[in-house]
Nucleic acid binder design. Structure first.
Lengths: 125, 125
DNA sequence: TTAGGTGCAAAACCTTTGCCATCCC
DNA sequence: GGGATGGCAAAGGTTTTGCACCTAA
């Protein structure tokens, strides 16, 4: 991956914030430095930087909304090969919500966990 | 919320699968029952059903991709009022990945946790 | 020199919305 | 009957892509 002014500016923006910005926010920040950078370039570089491991895309977020008729508490497992989402019935016993609330001062209403890996079927193919 | 054929068909599809389908997949399934149902109706009803609590939208997924220059393991907290995402440094000590792997037979590479609630600032407003 | 990157604009996607006809209560 | 819902199509918002030009290595 070639080093360019655009890429460096994007990295600088990301390093300078803890706000987990969207592509569009990065775009508007980077334009202060490179006014004529294009949004396409921002998207391209964000993807490249993710692939090379220099930055992370918040892995909680998929592209599509997904829906579930199951309403009780449970976690999910997403297969990185086939993309399918499975239910996981394992539950955390300790009250991690309280622990985080004490530490941060936030009101913690609930949490979601997504495991990632390879499902049984995809292991055999 | 009024009871309609379309709504029931959508619920039937959701109850009949554990695959956490996307709106588009629901649409294609429901069309086997109601061939001329429109995609807009599927979206509208999915949203209504979420609001009324009859189904859940997988809360792991936001609408926008968000990026992070921080690469070490950490969890996230999303404020349900302002939408901002914060880092959480609390980490699980027990090896929940192994526990899930033993139970499911999946290869579990990592997990992500997202806490939800109200951040400090939004509590005072 | 040249493979890879950029800017621009168009296209591709996913989701929402406006409008009017239709249906449920 | 009257308000909620449906179908259709257009609009909106985000992300990707094709192409001609540029630039880092």
């Amino acid at each position: 991956m070639r080093k360019t002014r655009q890429k460096e500016a994007i990295m600088a923006v990301l390093r300078g914030t803890t706000s987990h910005p969207t592509a569009d926010w990065v775009y508007s920040e980077v334009r202060k430095e490179i006014p004529n950078i294009s949004l396409g370039t921002v998207y391209r570089n964000l993807r490249l930087l993710c692939q090379s491991g220099e930055i992370a895309e918040l892995a909680l977020c998929g592209n599509l909304s997904r829906f579930d008729a199951r309403l009780d508490d449970h976690y999910h497992f997403r297969c990185e090969k086939c993309g399918r989402v499975f239910d996981v019935d394992e539950l955390l016993t300790e009250d991690i919500n309280d622990r985080v609330a004490r530490k941060t001062g936030f009101v913690v209403e609930y949490h979601k966990i997504e495991f990632r890996g390879i499902c049984r079927e995809c292991q055999n193919s």
